[in-house]
């Protein structure tokens, strides 16, 4: 027991002050929000794979989420970030947002970096956001993956099992557009066209800060 207490003291406090305080510094090689070209129009972040060899320039900005699909298309320096949910819906939710996760034909990187939000570093539960084990307990669905044929029905059933009002959050290029699997042999073009989406979080996978930033914007906890 003594050893556990001693180690606890050694571990110290590790939780980020985010969203308060200075924005967290990401290493120079981190590939964040894509840059627009000279014409002022940049790539579609919903399809971008954030690869170093995809002929795209990347900034160090982790803020990329959007409330609508068009907002993912980079336009100059203009940031079209996610809006908060409507007043009425936010009133129903109060200070609590329960989410159900459906993993549907990605590579498990999005899953892993959403899971990281539950570690002490990000400590998602301090914002009242929690992942729950049943769609019946959920206010919203988080979906990652390109939704191959074999997962389509399970996704729809999970969505239908959630009580109204409900929201859907698409995480990662696969869920938004099919990503690298778009047009593949197993009909993998993401959630679009299967269920309505309220928040798009692009990336391959998105950095945990990108996801957290998006979730907090949705709840009106980050405005600027």
């Amino acid at each position: 027991m003594l050893k556990i207490i001693m180690n606890r003291l050694k571990q110290g406090r590790r939780t980020l002050r985010f969203p308060a305080g200075r924005p967290p510094a990401l290493p120079p090689r981190y590939r964040g929000r894509p840059l627009a070209d000279e014409s002022g129009v940049g790539p579609d972040m919903g399809k971008t794979l954030y690869a170093p060899d995809d002929n795209t320039g990347y900034s160090n900005d982790y803020r990329m989420s959007s409330s609508n699909r068009e907002g993912l298309i980079v336009r100059g320096d203009e940031l079209a970030l996610a809006n908060a949910l409507g007043e009425k819906l936010r009133k129903i939710l109060g200070r609590s947002l329960k989410l159900r996760y459906v993993s549907a034909g990605g590579c498990n990187a999005c899953e892993a970096d959403v899971n990281v939000l539950n570690t002490v570093v990000f400590d998602l539960s301090r914002f009242g956001i929690q992942f729950v084990a049943s769609p019946r307990h959920a206010d919203g669905l988080v979906v990652s993956g390109a939704v191959p044929r074999n997962m389509r029905e399970a996704l729809i059933k999970t969505y239908e099992a959630m009580p109204e009002p409900k929201i859907v959050i698409a995480v990662g290029a696969c869920a938004i557009s099919g990503g690298m699997f778009a047009g593949g042999p197993e009909n993998t073009n993401g959630v679009t066209g299967i269920i309505p989406v309220d928040l798009y979080i692009p990336g391959c996978p998105p950095h945990p800060l990108t996801t957290l930033d998006g979730l907090l914007r949705l709840l009106g906890r980050i405005k600027k």
Binding site: C107, N108, P148, M151, E186
Partner: peptide, 29 residues
């Protein structure tokens, strides 16, 4: 089988850049 995306068949053909991305997505971890 629920995660079956058809990666092996997508590796065929000629685009090695795309194949490299796919290889990284066999299992993201």
């Amino acid at each position: 089988g629920y995660q079956h995306r058809g990666i092996e068949r997508m590796m065929n053909g000629g685009d090695l850049v795309r194949s490299a991305y796919l290889s990284e997505a066999v299992a993201g971890d």
